[in-house]
Each structure stands twice: as C-alpha cells, then as structure tokens.
Computed example of a mutant assay.
Amino acid sequence: MKPLIHILGNGNVAQVLAVQLTNSGYSIQSVYARKKENANEIQTLTGAVVTDKISDIEKMQGIVFFALSDTATAEFCKRIKFKKDVLAVHTSGTLPDNLLAECSADYAVFYPFQSIHKTDEGNPFKGIPVGIYASKEESYQLLSNIAFSLSAEAFEITEKQRKVLHLSGVLSNNFTTFLINEAAQLLKINDLNPNLIAPLIKKTLNIPDFTKKQLPQTGPAIRNDKEIIREHLKLLEKDHNLSEVYEMLTKSIRLRIKDNSSQL
C-alpha cells in the first residue's frame, strides 16, 4: 500500500513533484500554500485539498514533503510540531540533514539534482539523480521506492556531499545559463541572430562520461592568445560587468592550466 503524501509549497518543485507522484499512482492528500489561490493549478492537476492553515499541517499523516525555499523550510520547522507520526522530508540542496528533527522524529532529505520547472514537458524526474538521506533505514527504502516510481535514480548521500553536489549544479547550470544568455544578447544587440550559437552549445554540451574524461577546453585563454583576448575586452568595454566576467574566467583557465601542468 502506497503512503499518503502531503506537500508544503506551490512552486516549481512542489507542483512537478505533486503531479508526477499523482501520475505514478500516489495520492496527494493536501497541499499547503500561503495563499490558497496560488495552488489552484496543483489542485486541478492532482485533486489534492489545498490549505493555508498551519494547524492543518500539524494534523498531516504519512509523508510530508517540504518543497519550499530554504528560508521558509527553516521557518516552518520552528513553527510546527506534527501530532502524528510522519516522515518529514525536505528537498533542499543546502539545508542540514537533521533540520526537520525539530518537528518530527522521522526525517529525511529527497534532493532531485535537476533544474525543475512547471512548464517542463513529460516527466522531469525521468533519469535524474535523486540524493537521499533518512534518519531511519525503512524511511530510506520508502523514499528510494518513490524515486524509482518517478523513474529517477536514487542514491544515498551525506550532507557534505549534497552541498558539494549543489555547488556543482550552480557552477555547471546556473552560471552556464547566465553565460549563454549573455552570449545570445551580445549577438542580438549587434544585429546577429542569437540562434547562431545553438549548434556550438549543443556540441559543447554533448556530455562525455566524466569518470573517464573532461570536456575539451578550447579558446584564446587555453592558447594564451593575448591579442585576441585584448580584442574581446575592447568589444566588451561598454559592458563592465561582462568584461570583468571575461577577465576572471580567462584568468581562472590560465591558473587551472598551470595547476594541471605542475601535477604532471
């Protein structure tokens, strides 16, 4: 028999988790939102009851997913004390493993390592890694089964490992997204089609097996082509922020080359 599930939050992770769990045969009993109208879409897609009352949270049974911002999760943990035995689970990449121990004796972490959006097509959990920590072995198995039902790949992770994994996501996804958007905007303001960079990006992101090799680094920084670097900085002289980013990344690439050479 599948456990009853409640979700706190109405953002991207909350909605996608609720919908995909429903599609996998789980019953979403209720969803908490600060404003009930903010969870109307989740209610329509899952049939869950929506509440905006803290007192309703304390009565929940089964599994309660805290799919909130880190600040809100920490705040709620101090305000509530579950009246029934529940498995309290947060989905953060950075909060402590035992944060929810204040509100439940049975607590865990269910960290989907992916950038998840409500507008994603299909099942955003399919094939993605989900890091799990649980205070009890049976809770770990329960969450592993949920990850399996979502077609995700569950693995056990420590608090430190999860924080490092989150950092790697910021470096590889958040910063990369910023750079791609800046590159597209640079083309646009110079009367070039921003889609011109699409084939290059696709080739760049043709990910190898990182346990065997890294992505090949190319460009003027790796060659230490100072003339081209100066020319690029001249083109960016009106964009102080992007110019600083260019110089910092160029310097970082050069330093990494020196570090790698010294280890040979």
Rank of each mutant, 00 (worst) to 15 (best):
205 L>H: 14
50 V>C: 04
264 L>A: 14
60 M>R: 00
61 Q>V: 07
87 L>S: 07
254 R>K: 12
177 T>C: 15
133 Y>V: 03
166 H>E: 04
149 S>I: 09
17 L>D: 07
164 V>F: 10
260 N>T: 13
82 F>R: 11
205 L>E: 13
147 A>L: 11
170 V>P: 13
225 D>I: 09
20 Q>T: 10
135 S>Q: 09
155 F>I: 12
230 R>K: 12
116 I>N: 01
90 H>I: 09
92 S>T: 07
166 H>D: 03
19 V>D: 02
12 N>H: 13
32 Y>S: 05
123 N>L: 06
103 C>T: 10
118 K>I: 12
39 A>V: 11
226 K>C: 01
224 N>Q: 11
53 K>G: 02
241 N>I: 08
176 T>C: 14
46 T>M: 05
3 P>H: 08
220 P>F: 04
93 G>K: 11
225 D>A: 09
91 T>Y: 02
94 T>M: 13
139 S>C: 04
145 N>A: 15
232 H>V: 08
195 N>A: 14
120 D>A: 15
69 S>M: 08
9 G>Q: 09
251 K>A: 00
10 N>P: 09
237 E>S: 12
148 F>N: 15
90 H>C: 09
150 L>Y: 13
67 A>P: 04
102 E>T: 11
121 E>K: 14
258 K>W: 05
5 I>G: 11
178 F>T: 15
13 V>K: 00
77 C>Q: 11
213 K>W: 02
156 E>P: 11
34 R>G: 02
143 L>G: 00
239 D>P: 02
31 V>Q: 03
42 I>R: 10
149 S>R: 08
144 S>D: 07
72 A>S: 14
103 C>K: 02
208 P>T: 10
158 T>D: 08
170 V>E: 06
107 Y>Q: 01
205 L>G: 13
